[in-house]
Design a protein around this nucleic acid. Structure first.
Length: 494
RNA sequence: CGCGGGGUGGAGCAGUGGUUAGCUCGGAUGGCUCAUAACCAUCAGGUCGCAGGUUCGAAUCCUGCCCCCGCAACCA
């Protein structure tokens, strides 16, 4: 049965260059999307960029540009990354889009029954033109590290959103899995965090302190808090409220986010939706952080991994492979160039690439490239599908590699090259060989099907090679060995 | 006693009371020759963080302790 599904990715703040965490968002959403499409569902897959706020304005000023011009230049970096990881997204939203702006103002007006004026008090840096959290203030011993000035205790009048009014509903939705937080431990973590209830959130800043943003309706001296603006993208991108088709896709089936922003997505965002009278998303997929050799990535340490470099050096599918299999979907994962290259050379090149090659080569050599009719692969795929449904993509792709391994074992046991030698002496040998090789092709085609969500290019190359009933030689081998970061074990010893 | 997760062979992990604790990578040996010097098999290697307890029996349950990692609400 065909369903209309919707998946979203967190929209990154465009004040920097895209990093590997952004790429992970797009990749996970894309895997899910391709999987659902393969099952004949229709999917909308949204991406976007978050472009308002002081930090953007500051960066723009540094570059001598107005903020809009600045974001017009930087958002492209993110769009390029989405394309580069092969994300098959259908909708792109920028928070500076006119439709988004008018929509968020409509949202504000609709939420008015839950909005009140209140005082916000906190530590403020005049240089930064912004408040800092108590934690940050005490961490810096009361002095702004950028401006070498002491923070001041200031208060200002803000609009507040009565998130607290929705505490019970949100808690209930999370506990009952009506809005399911995946993985379970994130759900527990968040429920513990909100045990004292959701706290009202200040959702505006005086214009003098926050110039770059969406004005509050009927009160242009106040600018909307960036998170309110940003979170709304998930519905404005669908055309909410003016294009009725949004109703065919909301609520989202899956919203993808990193663990660092869970409280906005599991607290403020559902409260906004409830205030608007909308349904809550069905699932929040919270992925972990990618660390490098056990350490957090950071610019100062200089261990930041550029997704572009990975893709440029090893190819897109190699990137998609490592980040879907060796970075657990629902937990933190480790990246090092050595690990990456090892898994590329052993798993992609030796296990899969070589398997395709040896089967194709035997058919070419023994049967002049004629496959005959390949039987349908018969491997039990329930583990794979269960893993996909429970959003544990790494477990699903693990399952594919079990199949790769068992096909290699099968070939080793049956020894087609020995059967080939009997042709002419043994009357049944020829038919037997054909059967063995056709079976292998059937298994490979099944493997290719299961790889479609993960390695679309590889899957289609395998299909191309075998599906016509005769071998179509490809111009190059799948996953040629690469030794950039590790030693080539086959170099002769000096 | 803030909350949560975790400590299992060199590395990464699975395993929540029951036969000799599994898997992948790495290492050693052997086989094979269709293949990207690939593939397959076998072997080596673990006092399951520490100490007590419950039990016929614990990595698995209980108690205490040690260590690591997140989070601790307005930075997006």
């Amino acid at each position: 049965m065909e369903k209309k599904l919707y998946i979203t990715t967190a929209i990154p703040y465009v004040n920097g260059t895209p990093h590997i965490g952004n790429a992970l968002d797009y990749l996970l959403a894309d895997i899910w999307t391709r999987y659902q499409k393969q099952n004949d569902h229709e999917v909308r897959f949204s991406v976007g960029t978050d472009e308002h706020g002081n930090k953007i304005a500051a960066k723009a000023a540094e570059a001598g540009l107005n903020p809009k011009t600045y974001t017009d230049q930087t958002y492209v970096n993110f769009e390029n990354l989405m394309k580069k990881v092969g994300a098959s997204y259908t909708d792109f939203v920028r928070t500076t889009d006119p439709h988004h702006i008018s929509s968020i103002q409509y949202i504000w007006k609709t939420l008015l029954p839950y909005i009140y004026k209140g005082k916000y008090e906190g530590w403020y840096c005049i240089g930064c033109e912004s408040f800092v959290s108590d934690k940050e203030a005490s961490a810096n011993e009361g002095i702004c590290p950028d401006h070498k000035q002491p923070y001041q205790r200031l208060s200002e009048e803000n609009y507040y959103f009565k998130t607290s009014a929705f505490t019970d509903q949100v808690r209930e939705a999370i506990s009952s899995d009506e809005m399911k937080i995946v993985p379970e431990f994130r759900k527990k973590e968040f429920l513990a965090l909100m045990k004292d209830g959701l706290q009202d959130v200040s959702i505006s800043r005086p214009k003098k302190n926050l110039s770059w943003g969406v004005p509050v309706p009927d009160d242009p001296n106040n600018i909307m808090y960036v998170w309110l603006d940003a979170l709304a993208n998930y519905i404005t991108v669908l055309g909410y409220p003016d294009q009725p088709s949004w109703q065919e896709y909301w609520p989202a089936d899956v919203q993808i986010l990193g663990n660092d922003i869970i409280r906005f997505h599991a607290g403020l965002w559902p409260a906004m939706l409830l205030g608007l009278g909308l349904k809550l998303p069905k699932k929040l997929l919270v992925h972990g952080t990618i660390i490098v050799g056990g350490a957090k990535m950071s610019k100062t340490v200089g261990n930041v991994v550029d997704p572009n470099q990975v893709i440029d050096e090893y190819g897109l599918d190699a990137f998609r492979y490592y980040f879907s299999r060796h970075i657990p979907t629902l937990d933190n994962g480790d990246f090092t160039w050595e690990k990456f290259e090892n898994s590329y050379n052993t798993e992609l090149a030796n296990d899969l690439g070589n398997l395709v090659q040896r089967v194709a080569s035997m058919i070419t050599r023994y049967q002049a490239g004629v496959i005959g009719v390949a039987p349908k692969g018969e491997h039990d795929m329930s583990v794979y599908h269960e893993a996909m449904e429970s959003l544990e993509f790494n477990k699903a792709i693990d399952e594919v590699w079990l199949m790769v391994r068992s096909l290699n074992q099968y070939i080793e046991n049956v020894k087609p090259w020995q059967i080939a030698k009997k042709i002419g002496k043994d009357a049944e040998a020829e038919a037997h060989l054909t059967e063995v090789l056709a079976y292998s092709v059937g298994a490979l085609l099944q493997i290719a099907d299961l790889l479609v969500p993960f390695l679309p290019k590889t899957a289609s190359e395998i299909h191309k090679t075998f599906e016509s009933g005769a071998i179509v030689a490809s111009e190059s081998v799948l996953f040629p060995k690469i030794y950039i970061h590790t030693k080539n074990p086959n170099t002769p010893k000096v």
